[in-house]
Every structure is written in C-alpha cells, then in structure tokens.
C-alpha cells in the first residue's frame, strides 16, 4: 500500500491543478494577512475559503482524478494486489497530496502571521474538510460508472453541504420556531461537516459569546472539551464512513 501511496503522490504533486490550488491558497491567504492589520480578521476571511473552496476543490479534483485513472486502476487490479489495499492506497495518496496543498497554501501564511490556536483550528478544519470531501469523492466515483454522472454527483454533494443543507436548516428552524431546538441543532450540525467546521472555528474566533447570547447550550456544548471531542469524533466518522463504503463497494465492483 505504501508503494501505491508513493507513486500516486509522485503523480499528483506534479499535477497542474494541485499546484495551481496550492498557489491560489497561498496567494489568497498571504494577501489577506497582509491587507488586514488584525490577523484574526484575516482568519475570518480565510474561513470562507476553508469552508467553500477547500471542499469544492477536494471533491472535484479527487473525482476527476479517479475517473481519469480508471484504466490504470483496472490495470492495477489485474496485478497481484488486494483491491481494498489498492483503493485505500489511492485514497491515502489523494488525501496526502490535498493535505500537503493545504499545509503549504494555508499553513505557511497562518504560521507566519497567526500561529495561535485560532490559526491551528483553521488549519485543522481545512485538513479535515479536505479528507472528508476526498472521502465523498471516492464514494461518488465508485458508485457511478459514468464520469459525467460521477462529477455531477460530486458537485451536487458539495452544493448540498455548502448551501442546500443550511437552507433546509433555516427552513426547519422556522417551521419549529415554537419548540426548543438547541439539542436538535447540535445534532443537525453534526450531519454536515462544513457546518461543524464552521462552528468550531467560530467558537475559536470568540464569536462564542454571541452564540451564547442567544443559545447558551451551543457554546456550553461546543466550547467544552466534551463538545470538542464530539466534534472531532463526528469529523472522523465523516472521513471514515464514505471511504469505507466506497472501498467495500469497490471490492465487489465489476470493472
């Protein structure tokens, strides 16, 4: 499996899209830090990049990469190697390269300008979302045979988690405005990794007080160690479950 990761990394790190993505992250975050005199404001700007661009690039890039490699993957399947190992290796290779891109693109500016816990949370969130959306990409590439359909599904997933889901939450909130919804909200936030990442980051950015002003439970929960543990756990579940399903499906897939 290590060998697979190694060669996938060799390939992806020379990939123009990944290089452009890294450069984009780097330039945008550096210029944000340089334009804003207050680093925490810049982090707020980076928040949007982390929550929208990182998942989008992760899921689209991984899906396209997997489709473009389908013939090569077939060739590798015909070699004496377990399918699960093969796909897992490819997945890890993809994750590795995405993490490298975010570490270089976001990490270096953050470390230079705001190396505190806020910056670290930003990096962690960006990393976690990269992995989660690579995992979702793996799933959509494995369950759809057609390239166009697969990419469509990936885009749809991204759009769902970025926009549709929050719209639905808003709708639910209005529908059940008369009921206590705080616990339900915590559950709902766990069902969307982007929301989860955003909340964690905002709590770090001291917006916690504002959240508390309206819903103390929210802050008490996510602000505590237990909440942090819960959030990290849910994130890990988001990383593991889609890729696990994908790998299982791939095991018995007819290529």
């Amino acid at each position: 499996m290590k060998k697979i990761i190694k060669y996938i990394l060799i390939d992806i790190l020379k990939n123009r899209i990944i290089i452009a993505y890294t450069a984009l992250l780097f330039i945008v975050s550096l210029s944000l830090f340089m334009l804003e005199d207050n680093p925490s404001k810049a982090v707020l700007g980076l928040l949007n990049i982390t929550l929208i661009i990182v998942p989008l690039i992760s899921i689209i890039f991984c899906t396209i990469y997997l489709y473009n490699s389908s013939e090569f993957i077939e060739l590798l399947v015909a070699q004496p190697i377990k399918r699960t190992k093969l796909l897992f290796g490819i997945y890890l290779g993809l994750i590795g390269s995405l993490l490298l891109a975010t570490t270089v693109g976001l990490g270096i500016p953050v470390l230079l300008y705001d190396p505190g816990p806020t910056g670290m949370t930003l990096l962690m969130t960006a990393g976690a979302l990269s992995i989660v959306f690579a995992s979702l990409a793996l799933l959509s590439a494995v369950i759809t045979r057609d390239k166009a359909k697969g990419i469509g599904l990936a885009l749809l997933l991204w759009f769902y988690f970025s926009f549709i889901y929050d719209g639905l939450v808003l709708l639910i909130l209005f529908q059940f405005a008369d009921y206590p919804m705080e616990t339900a909200m915590i559950a709902l936030s766990a069902l969307n990794p982007i929301d989860l990442g955003r909340i964690l980051l905002l709590l770090q950015l001291d917006i916690s007080a504002m959240m508390g002003f309206t819903g103390a439970l929210f802050r008490d929960f996510f602000g505590s160690n237990l909440g942090l543990l819960f959030a990290s756990l849910v994130m890990v579940v988001w990383m593991v479950i889609p890729s696990f399903i994908a790998i299982r499906k791939f095991k018995n897939k007819d290529l």
């Binding site: 996938i8 390939d11 990939n15 473009n68 490699s69 013939e71 090569f72 060739l75």
Partner: peptide
C-alpha cells in the same frame, strides 16, 4: 485501452 497517470 491503456491510460496511465499523466505525470508519471
């Protein structure tokens, strides 16, 4: 049909 990763 043979296709290989672009950058290898």
């Amino acid at each position: 049909i043979s296709r290989f990763p672009d950058n290898m």
